[in-house]
Amino acid sequence: MRELDFLGATMLQLLGGVPLTVGLTAGSVAVGAVLALLLALLRANSRPGAALVSAYVFVFRGTPLLLQIFFIYYGAGQFAFVRASVLWPFLREPWCCALLALALNDAAYASEILRGGFAAVPKGAVEAGRAVGMTRLLLLRRVVLPLAIRQALPAYGNELIAMVKSTSLASLVTLMEVTGIAYAIISETYRAIEVFLCAGAIYLVLNFALTRAVAVLEAKLGPAGT
């Protein structure tokens, strides 16, 4: 019975971190998606732009996220000119640093996924759009993007789950999301296994819900009859 009480109390405390975990995920995915779109467009439209984007993707996909978070959080604070700049009110906050690092990381992966999506858009569809006199922007909005996103959705769903998991690293820059709270409980009770099992269950539920949501979206976007 005492065991159950402990698990219940732990679960309750951990659930208090869920809003922060969900907020970090949603925020970084939203910012990351915008950045990814910009990166994909930059890559498609100019040669120096493409080189720049590949360098960006190379660095962010080739190094651990933990190092990126750590670098943005502690590295930025090392310089007086950064602390005097207009950016400091943002960089001063651990929440902003974690969100920035997660979004930059997400953008690198998502832009690659989007690139794959663009590559899979049939040439015929674009030509058809042009033939009926669509402008570049309209073509992008009504033909290319929807088709590319539909193609990219399964891979992007995996990326979303990766992002939920990645928010756990925000605990290493003082944020008290689910993993951060788990640390704190352990340091008071020294019962690592039970606490981490509870935390793991929370992440599984979050990811299960996300997977279902992506599946529903996929079904909605899918062409009729498939």
């Binding site: 998991k165 756990s168 690592a192 981490f196 099992l197 935390a199 793991g200 992440y203 599984l204």
Partner: peptide, 19 residues
């Protein structure tokens, strides 16, 4: 595959390290 792809890696490392 569901569990180990759905739980943060940091948690898995702690679980194995202490558990």
């Amino acid at each position: 595959t569901t569990v180990f792809r759905g739980i943060p890696e940091l948690l898995v490392i702690y679980l194995v390290y202490f558990g």
